[in-house]
């Protein structure tokens, strides 16, 4: 046993002791087989490191180079002939030939399109989606509406739909008094209802105030006289005459769909249009979910 081996063994022992010390120090539970195997692996690596080091340092000390020199010398430095093993060389050339065949014949470079794969994936998904949600029941719609809401609407309206203390429309309520006054003062022509534009200033001063208080209060009690102007389009119950004008009493499928399609700009701020971002089923689901709030 020469001094090199003794040094390597000592090195391995130090590494093993260090491993054991770390395991003890971190109070690792060795009854768990994963931990035990990991520690044994670390010890194994220490032994292999010592062995390999010994082998190669020994080789560097004792081995002499052998072989046939090529003819040339560069600045007095020669080079051994070191041919590739023929099996290796032939398989390498074989792979090059196979690669050319694969590129040109087997799977031509123009045979695959990322967009094509995307289109197929989307088409398959849409078919599956339509089949699965052809006739959704109320519970399915509510669940779908909630998940759509959390992804698409919650960033502005908040996860509880309360509008994040006035940063967006409070969807648990139809309209606040300020919002109604704003619409009365400015009119509105944003949602594309058949009834068309609502002109500004249909009611003024105390009349507008009374209407706003009545509508914001959920239309309880007797309607103020000025509400008669609203009835012409929005209906006596405020529900919008079956989709002719926006429902001001609450959320319904038509209202939700019109807002999603057209976006909206009101007293609080602007909401972008969600045209093409949601399917009709998702719109219906959102409306169903909003009505449960």
């Amino acid at each position: 046993m020469n001094s090199l081996m003794i040094k390597a063994l000592a090195f391995a022992v130090v590494l093993i002791l260090a491993t054991v010390a770390v395991v003890k120090g971190m109070k690792i539970d060795l009854s768990d087989p994963i931990n035990l195997l990991t520690m044994l692996g670390a010890i194994g690596i220490a032994i292999i490191t010592a062995g390999v080091t010994t082998k190669y340092i020994g080789q560097m000390k004792t081995d002499k180079s052998t072989g046939e020199l090529v003819g040339d010398k560069w600045d007095g430095i020669g080079e051994y002939k070191n041919e590739l093993p023929s099996g290796w060389a032939f398989s390498f050339m074989g792979v090059i030939i196979w690669a050319l065949w694969y590129w040109i014949v087997g799977y031509p470079v123009n045979a695959y399109s990322q967009i094509g794969e995307y289109n197929e994936e989307t088409k398959a998904f849409n078919a599956k989606y339509e089949a699965a949600f052809a006739n959704p029941d109320q519970a399915t719609l509510t669940a779908m509406g909630e998940s759509v809401f959390l992804v698409q609407c919650a960033p502005c309206h908040g996860e509880t739909a309360d509008g994040l203390s006035g940063k967006a429309q409070d969807l648990t309520n139809r309209m606040s008094k300020e919002q109604i006054l704003d619409v009365i003062a400015k009119g509105s022509n944003q949602l594309g209802y058949p009834m068309g534009a609502m002109p500004p200033m249909l009611a003024q001063g105390a009349d507008a105030d009374a209407v706003a208080a009545y509508v914001a209060g959920g239309m309880q009690g007797t309607a103020p006289a000025a509400f008669a102007t609203c009835v012409a389009c929005h209906g006596a119950d405020g529900k919008g005459n079956n989709g002719a004008a926006p429902n001001i009493a609450g959320y319904d499928d038509t209202l939700v769909s019109h807002v999603l399609q057209n976006g909206k700009k009101g007293a609080i701020g602007a909401m972008p249009s969600f045209k093409t971002r949601l399917t009709p089923v998702q719109e219906k689901a959102l409306s169903t979910y909003l009505q449960t709030l």
Binding site: C156, K167, F274
Partner: peptide, 20 residues
């Protein structure tokens, strides 16, 4: 396409106020 001026204003001032 899906965020507006007022949303950005709230969000850049205090991101957690709109996305907890």
């Amino acid at each position: 396409n899906y965020r507006t001026t007022d949303w950005h204003e709230n969000h850049m001032w205090e991101p957690q106020s709109v996305v907890p």
